[in-house]
Amino acid sequence: MTLLHHIGKYALLLKRAFARPEKHKVYYIRLIREMEILGLNSVGIVVIISFFMGAVITIQTAYNTENPLFPTYLIGLAARDSILLEFSSTIVALILAGKVGSNIASELGTMRVTEQIDALEIMGVNSAGYLILPKILGLMILAPFLSALSMIVGLFGGWISGTAAGVISTPDYIYGIQFAFIPFYITYSLIKSVIFAFIITTVSSYHGYYTSGGALEVGRSSTLAVVHSSVVILLFNLILTHVMLS
C-alpha cells in the first residue's frame, strides 16, 4: 500500500519533471551546469575505483586459477568480461548512487525546507521541471562516458597489477583481453549505465523534493536516496541481465 503510494507519487513527479520547459535557454544553462556537477565532478572517483577494481580482479583471477593447464592469457579474458559486464556499469552506478544521490537529495531537500521550491512555484515556474529535469538528463548523457572511462581505466589497472605481481605477461594480457571478444558486452554495459543514471537521479530527486521538516529530515532523505537508489539499481541489474543477455 505505502509502496504503491510512493510509486504513484514518484510517477507524478516524473510527469511534472518532463513537462514542457518555460524557457529552453534557462533549462539548457541548467543542464550544462548539472552535467558538470553530477558528471564531470565524478570522473575522479570513477577513475580511482575502476583502477583498483581492475587491479584486484586480475590478481584474484590469477590466484584462483593457478593451474599449469590453464593458459595465462585467460586471466586477461576473465578480467575483461568482469569489468565490461558488471563493474564498469553496476559497481560504478552504486558508487555514483552514493555520491550523486546524496548530493541531489540534500540539495533539493534543503531547497524544500528553506522554501526555495515554494518560491519557484510562486513565480509560476514548474519547480520539478526546472530543478529535476536537468539533473536526469545531465547524468544520463554523461553516464556512458563515465562507464567507458571506467572500462579503459579498469583494464589498465588490471594490466599494471597483473604485470607488477608477475602473474601475467604484457603480451598474454593484451592477447587475453582481445580473445573471444563480444562487442555487444560494451553496448550492454553502456545501456545499463544510462538506465542506472535515470534511477539514481529520479529516486534521489524524489526523496529530496518531498522532504518535509528541517535539517534533520534533509539528512534522512539523503540516506534514503542512497539506499533506495542502490536497491533499485541491483534489482534492475538482475532484470536487465536476464532480458539482455539470455
Partner: peptide, 19 residues
C-alpha cells in the same frame, strides 16, 4: 495557476533566496 502566479511577487518569512 501557473499563469496567474507570474503576476505574483512574494516575500517569504525566511527570504527563501536561491542559495
Amino acid at each position: 495557476k501557473k499563469q496567474i502566479r507570474q503576476k505574483f511577487g512574494m516575500l517569504f518569512q525566511g527570504a527563501a533566496l536561491f542559495d
